[in-house]
Design a binder for these strands. Structure first.
Length: 812
DNA sequence: CCGTGCAAAAAACTT
DNA sequence: TTTTGCACGG
């Protein structure tokens, strides 16, 4: 996020040099054209790895260095905050630091910024809360219960996805209500929930994710003079990942690049006291120039309302648009591109586009079929170790999964094998209950109208304010017509016991203190105060439940992250902090953590990254493992029913393949644990779309030659036969049936301290016993504090790297 | 009002 | 397999 002062009225710079030749250096002809072209609308169709970020940053740098635009006249939209930060950095580097005032941000960050400034126009207060998916869910859940509508079988998930779709299509409550089928009781039930949800958000002074975009569009449409501020200011709008924009985002862009009518322009300039902007002959301010970059083959967010037509029909939308195709790939080997091209060619309704490279065919793609998720994970771990032995850094290796559930076996095996890894996304830090509790306090301090936040913490830590009391408070709030927060100010009004009154008064005082602090103290101090004064932190610390200990530590971690934020943005207010957290994306944690390891002194060796295919978009790695390439997983079973679902899954697979620079591994398992029991899996149809000679199948049973023709899959009948894992694995029998003697806990959670050998010290020559591998001799010890790794030669012949602290081993 | 214990439900992807 | 919701006794 950016917290720079906005410059709304800079006259356009005069001097126009050409584009600095240095900015064009090393670009191919198409890329050069994309940097240099000037006109109303430009579509850059950028295939994977075609250097689009480079083109985009140089295009911006060109606008600045030729003095065609001030930084403040540029708005660049990226998909993640991380991409925004990266782009800013690269532009600053190119132009030598003169990028202040430029807006480079995500759709959501940009819109929140606009809405906070113009909140009153929309009937909001500037301190509005942003509800994340979990908040919305909790709210809808309560509404369904309160409205006695559960008989229709409404589920929070179903209701929310429908509301989200409506909002992404800019169908607000009123227009939906107008068109609702009033003979359909279930439809009316849904309408009632939608209505209550909308009202609850409004009363709580809150917006959900979809509102952030939609309300901005409504703002611009309802208040042309407000829109004009931004239309007049931004002369160059650039949008990355255009194929993933939904209708609301599309509408927003259209509003932003719309010309300003003469009378509106006059009015705004008079009101603000600005000098007239450059006008067209008819007195209007011409619309901004628009550059969009995207690749319809990488559109993977249809489930979130992304409309591929936005990019496909760009030329109809903007008849004067110029289109540039970037097909030369600078990332992957030809073999990887061949596989990618072959797969995506099966999507029939796409414009022909073929990626090519001049950098050689490279290594074969490696395939592997495991017996289970664990076996597959073992293969991945073994291959990672041999890549490392061949000199590849862990940080250059990524493992992709379709669903977060797949990460478990990977983590378990990686921990056991001592493969350092980092999980991106998954159960996120900011989703943990205690962290959300802490944020509920802060939210309430910033936005007293937020009943949901108050309900969350009114009895956390335990204050003796139970359901009955909350109901009484709520009843009074409803009667008087004030937020719940207001009722806390007069507990004596309710005839409660003295203990309860005291508890309520204490909470009331605490929240007021927080609000007072927030006015002139940094966010982390407010955070520390509410955590301490509420006793929340102390209660967790004092608990004898080991999980509470971890929770207390998470709160400590939260405080230090808040301090970190303070260092990065010294001027930031509490609301800025809450906004930044609310809009933090999974992909954003990538670089933060990477910096942390990368900067570590003394040759710290980076980590393998595990993430979903969705999160992987836009990234690249030397070696990529795509796991779970199975029917019903990739393509996911939920996609089979939706029209276009398979095509989207195929694009997802395509995105995964094209992340790889040098090595690509495709793996699957013939059975996979889900929900507790085991289900059988078939190889993905996508595998048969890759020419057989591109893949080298590993493992004993693959000698028959893979299933490039679609056949060759092992029948279910021989699944029970005990087999050896193929690659450098031990003979533990891990893959065919579990060893009942093995204690289960040792497979368990990487985060919690389930297995902990404390400060067990091993030296070369020590004998140890491992639960899976049996006895062995320590051959080497790599000291690294708590991450000390021992290399052990097991008597069975296998040689393993083990993380001493957590490996299921004992010293003999 | 709080803690315990059992039954039931739940997991695609994400701003 | 893990998390959540509800009934019960204190």
């Amino acid at each position: 996020m950016t917290l720079l002062t906005d410059v709304f009225d800079d006259p356009a710079p005069r001097a126009r040099g050409g584009i600095d030749p240095a900015l064009l250096e090393g670009l191919n002809e198409r890329q050069r054209e994309a940097v240099e072209y000037r006109g109303r609308a430009l579509l850059i169709v950028a295939g994977a790895g075609s250097g689009k970020t480079s083109v985009l940053t140089r295009r911006i740098a060109g606008l600045l260095s030729s003095r065609e635009a001030w930084p403040s006249q540029i708005l660049a939209i990226t998909f993640t905050n991380k991409a925004a930060a990266e782009m800013r950095e690269r532009v600053e580097h190119l132009v030598g630091g003169a990028a202040d005032g430029m807006w480079i941000s995500t759709f959501h960050s940009a819109c929140v910024r606009i809405l906070r400034r113009q909140a009153e126009a929309m009937g909001l207060k500037a301190g509005f809360t942003i509800y994340d998916a979990a908040d919305s869910r909790a709210l809808v859940k309560r509404i369904i219960r309160d409205a006695d509508l559960d008989s229709f079988g409404f589920t929070p998930g179903g209701v929310l996805s429908r509301i989200s779709k409506l909002k992404n299509e800019l169908t607000d409550l009123e227009s939906f209500a107008r068109n609702v089928d009033s003979t359909d009781a279930r439809e009316l039930g849904f309408l009632e929930i939608y209505r209550r949800y909308t009202e609850a958000l409004r009363r709580a002074n809150a917006l959900d994710f979809d509102d952030i975009i939609g309300e901005t569009v409504y703002l611009f449409r309802a208040f042309p003079e407000v829109a004009a501020l931004y239309q007049r200011r931004f002369r160059h709008v650039l949008v990355d990942e255009y194929q993933d924009t939904n209708h609301a985002q599309y509408a927003l862009i259209r509003e932003l690049v719309r010309p300003v009518d003469a009378d509106v322009a006059d009015a705004v300039e008079a009101k603000q006291g600005w000098a007239p902007a450059l006008r067209a002959p008819d007195g209007s301010i011409p619309g901004a120039s628009l550059t969009v970059v995207g690749d319809s083959d990488q559109s993977i967010y249809a489930f979130r309302g992304a409309d591929i037509r936005n990019i496909v029909e760009f030329e109809q939308d903007f008849p004067e648009a110029h289109v540039i195709l970037l097909e030369q790939n600078y990332r992957s080997t030809q073999r990887i591109l061949d596989a990618a091209n072959a797969v995506i060619a099966n999507n029939f309704d796409r414009k022909a586009k073929r990626l090519f490279t001049t950098s050689g065919s490279g290594e074969p793609i490696v395939g592997y079929t495991g017996y289970s998720g664990h076996d597959e994970a073992q293969f991945v771990a073994d291959e990672i170790e041999s890549l490392r032995d061949a000199g590849m850094d862990y940080s250059q290796i990524a493992v992709f999964v379709r669903t977060n559930a797949q990460t478990r076996p990977l983590e378990e095996v990686f921990i056991r094998e001592g493969v350092p890894y980092r999980l991106v996304g998954g159960t996120r830090f900011y989703e943990r209950a205690e962290v959300k509790d802490a944020f509920a306090y802060l939210t309430l301090v910033a936005n007293p109208d937020d009943d949901l936040a108050l309900r969350r913490i009114i009895n956390v830590p335990k204050r003796g304010i139970g359901d009955a009391t909350v109901a009484a408070l709520q009843a009074r709030a409803d009667r008087v017509g004030v937020p719940l927060r207001e009722v806390l100010r007069e507990p004596e009004e309710l005839g409660l016991g003295p203990k309860l009154q005291a508890a309520i008064r204490e909470l009331d005082v605490l929240l007021d203190e927080g609000t007072r602090m927030a006015a002139d103290r940094p966010p982390h101090e407010v955070l520390m105060h509410v955590l301490t004064a509420s006793g929340y932190h102390a209660v967790l610390k004092a608990s004898r439940d080991p999980q509470d200990e971890a929770r207390a530590e998470n709160l400590d971690e939260l405080v230090s992250q808040a301090k970190e934020f303070r260092n990065q943005y010294p001027e930031a207010t509490l609301i800025d902090y809450l906004t930044s957290v609310a809009l933090f994306a999974a992909a954003d944690e990538l670089d933060a953590a990477e910096d942390a390891t990368g900067n570590a002194a003394g040759g710290a060796r980076g980590k393998v990254t595990i993430m979903t295919l969705h999160t992987a978009k836009g990234l690249e790695y030397d070696a990529v493992f795509i796991t779970g390439v199975e029917e019903e997983l990739l393509p996911h079973r939920m996609s089979l029913l939706e029209p276009g679902g398979i095509a989207e899954e195929r694009r997802l697979f395509y995105v995964g393949i094209t992340r790889a620079r040098k090595r690509l591994y495709l793996s699957l398992a013939t059975s996979r644990a889900s929900f507790g029991d085991v289900s059988v899996a078939m190889p993905s149809r996508f595998l048969s779309e890759i020419p057989g000679d591109l893949i080298e199948w590993r493992g004993d049973r693959r000698s028959q030659g893979g299933w490039s023709g679609g056949g060759g899959f092992r029948s279910l009948g021989d699944r029970g036969a005990p087999r050896r894992p193929a690659i450098g694995a031990s003979a533990s029998g891990r893959t065919s049936g579990r060893d009942p003697a093995k204690p289960k806990t040792e497979w368990r959670t990487p985060i919690g301290a389930v297995r902990d050998n404390g400060d067990l010290k091993l030296a070369v020559g020590d004998r140890i016993r491992h639960t899976d591998f049996g006895e062995g001799r320590v051959a080497n010890v790599i000291e690294n504090g708590p991450r000390t790794v021992a290399e052990v030669e097991f008597d069975g012949g296998a040689r393993k790297r083990l993380l001493v602290k957590v490996a299921p081993i004992e010293k003999l």
